[in-house]
Nucleic acid binder design. Structure first.
Lengths: 130, 130
DNA sequence: CCTTCATGTTTACAAACGTAATCGATCCAC
DNA sequence: GTGGATCGATTACGTTTGTAAACATGAAGG
């Protein structure tokens, strides 16, 4: 048998990720031009580049298209929080043997967390624990 | 002018990272063969592949060599904890706008943290806070 | 000495990525 | 209806990555 029509969530590259962020943020279906305008602030890309990235994302099934006249509107087909979760997990697996607590420990020890952060997290944990 | 003899810590790829882990773990200077034996457990690589990755890492100045007879011994030139810190920060910047606390929040909410993890982290925080 | 083996170096090659130009079709304004 | 603007699709091209074979060289054994 073997998987034909797929499952494996194709890896999204850095440049592609910038496009995804634009889509997530601008949370209605957006045209290529919209995305281009949006990312122009941060990335110095040509419209052509944005279009290329959009097609690649469509191929990877990370976004979906819907026709709108003679153009397309694009929508993310995965939720940002799922993506973020996946990437976080990847990192935790790769660097902390899958133990998320180790990540937190590392952040804390390396002072990536301010005192305020600590307090905030502590409150959060308290809430989650009960 | 422009930077000649460099600074920017060259990005380490996934495959290269596996080599780094081997070096960090096997914490004496190691030969290519040593690394090969070491990673054989997890990655089905040929010795040639390991050698290629080692040279690339040398080029990227992530590891240093010291001659040992007619071969080389390799040593990481960056500490694992620095690397881990850098990668973690990268992720936090990319996905959480630089706010590490958001990462923790996300892990917690998405139940990437078990009850035990929560307790463990809570204890950790308590310790760090005072 | 000559063969064999170990070792680093060079070269290889396909896939993914970053970045874009070009092409073909369509729509809009004159 | 014609010329320019606008779109998606196709093609391009250099770099990085994954994976390795081929090559050169020196050591070691017989």
């Amino acid at each position: 048998m073997a998987r034909k029509s797929d499952d494996s969530p194709e890896r999204i590259s850095d440049a592609e990720h910038a496009i995804m962020e634009a889509l997530w943020d601008h949370d209605a279906p957006a045209s290529a031009q919209d995305i281009f305008d949006y990312v122009a602030a941060t990335r110095d890309w040509s419209l052509a580049t944005v279009k290329t990235l959009l097609s690649r994302l469509v191929t990877k099934q990370a976004i979906a298209t819907q026709p709108d006249g003679r153009r397309f509107l694009y929508t993310p087909s995965i939720a940002r929080s799922d993506y973020v979760g996946g990437e976080s997990r990847r990192l935790v697996n790769k660097l902390f043997g899958g133990r998320a607590a180790s990540l937190v420990a590392h952040l804390a020890e390396s002072e990536a967390l301010s005192m305020d952060d600590l307090t905030e997290i502590e409150a959060l944990l308290k809430e989650l624990k009960q």
